Simulated assay, not measured.
Amino acid sequence: MKKMLLGAGMLMLSINSHAAQDPEAVYARACAACHNGQLPIAPQKGDKAAWEPRLAKGMDVLVQSVTNGLNAMPPRGLCMDCTAEDYQAVIQWMTE
């Protein structure tokens, strides 16, 4: 019984660590308005040179910047229902 509960708990932890939303859909709904080039200081999707110094800070710092807002980016990056895992997935998707 203990092993079943432990296994179920581990399964729930692994499920919770994945993004709940599709990164491309979140980008289209909340991020594209600024990251498609309309806001010059926002790095565009796929612009490796623009993303490189940001990625060098680490994913935790980037997620914190989205959550709290940074410069012209509003808090939560206009995605009020996103989790930290969603933000991480969108950042990963944008940097590809």
Results as ranks from 00 to 15, higher is better:
residue 47 D to L: 03
residue 24 E to D: 10
residue 47 D to A: 09
residue 46 G to M: 11
residue 19 A to P: 08
residue 52 E to H: 12
residue 63 V to H: 00
residue 64 Q to I: 06
residue 46 G to W: 14
residue 40 P to I: 07
residue 47 D to G: 05
residue 62 L to K: 00
residue 35 H to M: 05
residue 61 V to S: 07
residue 27 Y to F: 05
residue 23 P to Y: 02
residue 42 A to H: 13
residue 64 Q to F: 11
residue 31 C to M: 00
residue 35 H to P: 02
residue 41 I to V: 15
residue 27 Y to S: 01
residue 53 P to R: 13
residue 32 A to N: 07
residue 49 A to C: 07
residue 21 Q to S: 10
residue 54 R to M: 11
residue 29 R to K: 12
residue 65 S to Y: 01
residue 48 K to I: 09
residue 50 A to L: 08
residue 16 N to Q: 10
residue 56 A to K: 15
residue 33 A to T: 04
residue 44 Q to E: 13
residue 50 A to E: 08
residue 62 L to E: 02
residue 61 V to L: 08
residue 15 I to S: 11
residue 58 G to K: 12
residue 51 W to C: 09
residue 28 A to Q: 14
residue 27 Y to T: 01
residue 53 P to F: 11
residue 52 E to G: 08
residue 35 H to L: 04
residue 14 S to V: 15
residue 59 M to L: 14
residue 43 P to D: 05
residue 50 A to V: 10
residue 23 P to T: 05
residue 14 S to N: 11
residue 55 L to A: 04
residue 26 V to P: 00
residue 39 L to P: 02
residue 18 H to R: 14
residue 57 K to E: 09
residue 27 Y to Q: 03
residue 20 A to M: 13
residue 26 V to C: 00
residue 37 G to K: 04
residue 43 P to A: 09
residue 23 P to W: 01
residue 16 N to Y: 14
residue 66 V to L: 10
residue 17 S to T: 05
residue 64 Q to L: 08
residue 34 C to E: 06
residue 57 K to D: 09
residue 62 L to D: 01
residue 23 P to V: 02
residue 41 I to E: 12
residue 58 G to H: 15
residue 60 D to V: 11
residue 56 A to F: 06
residue 66 V to H: 01
residue 38 Q to N: 12
residue 17 S to V: 04
residue 45 K to V: 08
residue 14 S to Q: 13
residue 52 E to F: 09
residue 25 A to M: 10
residue 44 Q to S: 07
residue 45 K to S: 09
residue 64 Q to K: 15
residue 60 D to K: 11
residue 50 A to W: 06
residue 20 A to Y: 14
residue 43 P to N: 13
residue 58 G to Q: 11
residue 52 E to T: 14
residue 31 C to V: 01
residue 17 S to K: 01
residue 57 K to T: 09
residue 66 V to A: 02
residue 43 P to K: 04
residue 28 A to H: 08
residue 67 T to C: 09
residue 57 K to N: 12
residue 55 L to H: 01
residue 48 K to F: 05
residue 67 T to K: 14
residue 33 A to H: 04
residue 41 I to Q: 08
residue 29 R to N: 07
residue 54 R to D: 02
residue 67 T to M: 14
residue 20 A to C: 06
residue 17 S to E: 02
residue 49 A to D: 10
residue 52 E to N: 09
residue 17 S to M: 13
residue 29 R to A: 12
residue 63 V to R: 00
residue 37 G to L: 01
residue 30 A to F: 01
residue 31 C to L: 00
residue 67 T to F: 08
residue 56 A to S: 10
residue 32 A to F: 03
residue 25 A to F: 03
residue 25 A to D: 12
residue 29 R to E: 11
residue 49 A to Y: 08
residue 56 A to V: 10
residue 41 I to A: 08
residue 14 S to I: 11
residue 47 D to C: 03
residue 40 P to W: 14
residue 47 D to H: 13
residue 54 R to W: 03
residue 14 S to C: 15
residue 38 Q to E: 11
residue 49 A to E: 09
residue 64 Q to N: 15
residue 54 R to P: 00
residue 13 L to P: 06
residue 55 L to S: 00
residue 31 C to D: 01
residue 55 L to C: 04
residue 45 K to Y: 08
